[in-house]
Design a protein around this nucleic acid. Sequence first.
DNA 1: ATACCTCTTGGTATCGCTCCCAAAAGGCCG
DNA 2: CGGCCTTTTGGGAGCGATACCAAGAGGTAT
Lengths: 329, 329
Amino acid sequence: MADVARLAGVSPMTVSRAFKRDSSVSESTRETILKAADEIGYVFDATASNLRSQKTDFVAVTIPSINNANFAETLRGLSEGLKARGLQTLLGYTDYDIQEEERLIEQLLRRRPEAIVVTGGRHTPRARRMLQNAGIPVVETWDLPEVPIGHVVGFSNAQAVRGMVDHFVAQGLTRIAFIGGDADRDTRGSDRREGFIAAMRGHGLDASRLIAAGAPPISMREGAAAMGRLLEALPDTQAVICVSDLSAFGALTECQRRGIAVPGRIWIAGFGDYEIAEVAVPSLTTINPFPREIGTRTAALLLEVMDGRQDSPARVEITPRLLIRESSR
Amino acid sequence: MADVARLAGVSPMTVSRAFKRDSSVSESTRETILKAADEIGYVFDATASNLRSQKTDFVAVTIPSINNANFAETLRGLSEGLKARGLQTLLGYTDYDIQEEERLIEQLLRRRPEAIVVTGGRHTPRARRMLQNAGIPVVETWDLPEVPIGHVVGFSNAQAVRGMVDHFVAQGLTRIAFIGGDADRDTRGSDRREGFIAAMRGHGLDASRLIAAGAPPISMREGAAAMGRLLEALPDTQAVICVSDLSAFGALTECQRRGIAVPGRIWIAGFGDYEIAEVAVPSLTTINPFPREIGTRTAALLLEVMDGRQDSPARVEITPRLLIRESSR
DNA sequence: ATACCTCTTGGTATCGCTCCCAAAAGGCCG
DNA sequence: CGGCCTTTTGGGAGCGATACCAAGAGGTAT
């Protein structure tokens, strides 16, 4: 910066100002400075700037996976909302693992974000403590944790699945199965399974048709394999609710390979309203959790909180929508 | 850090060392310090550390989209390879837009990464200049640019599609179409289209059956719509090569909805070997570009270069594999 | 012509950590 | 017990930007 100042014939302080948006530098001076900077290939050093100003202008975000259309939509809504205020997004992914999440959160907090958004409401004790003590706004998304750390923008996975069960039961089906991952690695996935069990019991139905398909998130292939096992173990099953559209599609293909009619012989539903649910033949009944809206609402909430508004809601609840498609009618 | 030092009864310098891996602090002192730090909720400040040491221990990576299984695999291979050496990955996505890429590269370089990995070989002139002048290793991936900036780990999209055309022609097909995006936003996509045209001409065949399906990356829905238009405009088409497996799957579903046999009446192929290509019924002929390997090879190359090895290859070429599946036999 | 205001520019100290150098502490030997 | 080595600890300066304060330049009103 000193070099640029020398070349432009001004003080370093003025160069510093020229690189900020709304600072008091005459337009001609700014142009001279930016040209000089470009000439010697100067690149602004955000590290030093952040240290001195104690501001970083970015928000840390953790998502379980970088290969998921739903989380991508949430991130898009979030980062667009933040960009409008000059805030950047610093992204990390946890691989659906709360141990990995703990490591990631620590790394992110070391960079002193202005706020942090995490996906999910279950964390290691140390991660919770770090978030609580960080002294910045915290938003948990895609969930409605019972004891939130800070703010929440999410929905009830269990309740959404209940709506799906109700739909099947209303159609007169009783032998309904659930395909999901094993273990509780993906907490949203296990919440959905719990919701399934509770809803079935609420209807006085057998809730034991549970197929564990592997480590979450389960893939199309795993969905197909699980459907194969289900068809062999419990051939009288009438309907299957899958933890995600991807596994539901896998289940559908397994039926197709075996010549089993969907719908007709078996009904299938997924979760997430991924593109494939609409495009598949037959199209898949699913639940749209409005991932984009989770992102935009989170961004709006964060901007409010960072502006110091005291009356911001602690909890924003999104209502997922059940989409009945060809695979269940 | 001074507070931690006071509480632990040591100097700040010793606290600093306790937070590093291989520094000379006695194990007992380190424990005392870490306990003290935990007690007062101290979080290490990476900003100050980076500034003073002029090291950041992270590598910047740009990918076109955070919702793509192929790029996710490359990123996974890359970040695992780097993690082994204590390097973190700082991720940004460009939305397939080289203007956005330019902005992103500038933001990333401001944080002083130790190296930068970009997806693709086409950039704005200013982005090229910034990369050249950054004074750090640069790797372009997923492409084989004619004039690379630094190192390259990629493959020829055009040549890969040529192999696909050869396969169809060898089966006696001549009326072959290509479904892709419009414009050159996604350079890998347009390279594939160019490869298709060149290969068809090389066989003396008509290369004009080109369907533009919208802004890249094109979706399943857009693939389906494009197939609809193709079937109406050029009903005698025998085979369709799609720019990606997702659009190929969309095209397949459109045929299924219209009762057109795949294969039989029409052959379909995609690109990328996404999971859906294997699971779909019929499974889709596609090309596996070994995205994971692109990532691991990039990581290995970077570690070599950062160790100061002079004999590292400037260019690592990956050979994609053609996978003949049910949709074309 | 002077007072007064706004707009633009400059100088100094400092953000929190670590490099570099120096020195104390501990261990081993004759 | 002193000498010599290795291991562990401490002190001062500085990384590259900006907050804060101060002052010069230019314009307007009286």
